[in-house]
Amino acid sequence: MIPALKVDGLKISIRTDEGIARVLDDVSVTLESGRIVGVVGESGCGKSTLIRAIMGILPRGASVDGGKIWFEGENLLVFSEKELNQRVRASRIGFIPQDPLQALNPVFKIGTQLLEAMRWHAPGSRRDHIARLVMLLGRMQVPDPAGALERYPHQFSGGQRQRLLIAAALACAPGLVIADEPTTALDVTTQHQILLLLRELVAEFGISLLFVTHDFGVVAELCDDLCVIYAGQTVEAGTVQSILEAPSHPYTRALLACHPDRADSFVGIPGIVPSPLARPAGCLFAPRCGDVRPLCREATPAQGRARSGAAVRCVQYS
């Protein structure tokens, strides 16, 4: 079976005033159909750029230097803006944003905003669209779904707004949904409900979910597969269970050790993510790595395989 989404060796650079920033430098993510993959990394590692590349909304000055984005057997990178709008965005790839308040226009009713996208991207009449939205909002456990369409964003709580946007992402029945840290702004109890809901929706609506987060706790709870990104490179990829049991890459181990469940004391990771303008030679994690060897500073390590079955980019495994 072909994967729902396969990002293969993606390289993206952005021209800036200070030079060329190599934001993504060999990122690979595979999302098998019907599964949930978590993409984890610190801020500045390229998680948002990856999402923007898949959606085809890279900032100006960005260029794709290599790699492919396979989506249902087609390479998204060769699509024109018009093709993306007509054939991919909303209709086949849904998006759940991080900040539900920013994503909603305060002066329009919820129904107006959600139906707008369906008018362009979903088959059927307006009446069909309303019926589907009411069904979805009911499924999202939004109280009074029909009435909700007539209300404004400020009349909903943060958790409810996130439910509205999940419904919006599913409105045109896409096969792939991309979520950008959708629960970071929420309370733990609300976050928990949203995560449970997402899990159910994946099975119920037959979608595949790419979930970006920096919280390993959320990954452990929600995701099937995991892809750890550091400084624009995939450093470890495998199933969540195998990586949580036996993390192989030093960066994955360091990140996990920061989680309060695993930490003996608050250690953190010394240093910062290297700037995309000036990446060090050799392994990008070497300057912060606790297990660094002379070989690490010489060449970029090749992809190897750890005993856990995960693909790891580290000299210890290549």
């Binding site: 733990v188 109890t189 928990h192 899990r199 706790g217 452990a220 709870e221 969540v240 949580l244 469940d261």
Partner: peptide, 11 residues
């Protein structure tokens, strides 16, 4: 509250 907190112990 305690039950809602995401844990590394899994799903």
């Amino acid at each position: 509250l305690l039950n809602a907190a995401p844990r590394l112990t899994g799903r």
